[in-house]
Design a protein around this nucleic acid. Structure first.
Length: 126
DNA sequence: GGCGTGACTATAC
DNA sequence: GGTATAGCCACGC
């Protein structure tokens, strides 16, 4: 096509990122880096943050389900955003009161309702 | 078109 | 557990 073709524009990348975030099931969380990877944008975790930051209030996008590496809440303690995120997560059954979420239990891809220990043991030889 | 910015991440101490 | 430091990379001015 014409120029160095804009097969991928910033807007398109943002759309890809939001599409992934919207697919995170209720009661689950994932990380910035994972969202980026799933959106086909490896190493662009920061872009994910930027896109979410530009989200208007009440967008309907479950931004609260995106956390930093290791399940950490990205916002500084005491910040309004942090308080908001913790409240939203709590509303869907996720405890983030201590500033982090247990990815083993609530990470996207973790076992559903089953017994965690059993699930962990079942992958012992991988 | 260079340069600062950031809701990131990994590593080291 | 925490702080420091250094890569990372698209975006926007």
């Amino acid at each position: 096509m014409g120029t160095s073709s804009s097969a991928s524009t910033p807007e398109r990348r943002a759309a890809a990122i939001l599409a992934v975030v919207e697919r995170i099931p209720r009661g689950r969380v994932t990380t910035y880096g994972s969202v980026a990877a799933r959106a086909g944008l490896p190493r662009q975790a920061r872009l994910v943050g930027k896109v979410l930051a530009s989200l208007p209030p009440r967008s309907g996008v479950p931004w609260q389900r995106v956390v930093a590496a290791g399940g950490r809440i990205a916002f500084p303690e005491g910040s309004p955003s942090r308080t908001r995120q913790v409240r939203l997560l709590r509303a869907e059954g996720i405890d983030a009161a201590r500033g982090r979420v247990d990815l083993k239990r609530h990470g996207w891809g973790a076992p559903d309702g089953g017994d965690l220990d059993r699930w962990l043991w079942s992958r012992e030889g991988e």
